[in-house]
Amino acid sequence: MKEPNDVILRSVTKVAVVIIFTFSINLFFSGHHLPGGGFIGGLGFAAALTLLFLSYDIETVRENISLDFKKVAVVGVLIAVGTGLGSFLFDAPFLSHTFDYFDLPIFGKTELATAVLFDVGVAMAVIGTAVTVIMTISEDR
């Protein structure tokens, strides 16, 4: 009985993971005017990590990405609440946001919004929660 190997799966994963990471970052930044945003960007990120866990194993991925994903979730929730509380500094209601147009060197005229900071928190919370759930389920003992 030949021992099963997954050379094809691992070769495809090496290419596809890069594409999925890039796509989820694009989805994250397009979330202000187009479909996308922090939640679905984080889910795409978690999907790419799940693909890595599937084609390799937990030990190998943890050696290379040595983040504690529970802490990622906690930090994300703190960032999201903190940006909401930050609007109190300017006498504005909770979670109100602002935006302005800046001239950046490469991108030209760019719209920068404070809602992106809130979205960073949401994305980190989603990534941390999803990856923690998947790793907890997959443990045998």
Binding site: P4, A47, T50, L54, D57, I58, E59, M135, S138
Partner: peptide, 21 residues
């Protein structure tokens, strides 16, 4: 794609995510 891979691994190996290689 990811769902199909997970089901295929479960059918072939009986375990979805291996702990150690």
């Amino acid at each position: 794609f990811i769902g199909t891979i997970a089901f295929a691994r479960y059918l072939e190996r009986g375990v979805v995510i291996e702990h150690k290689r």
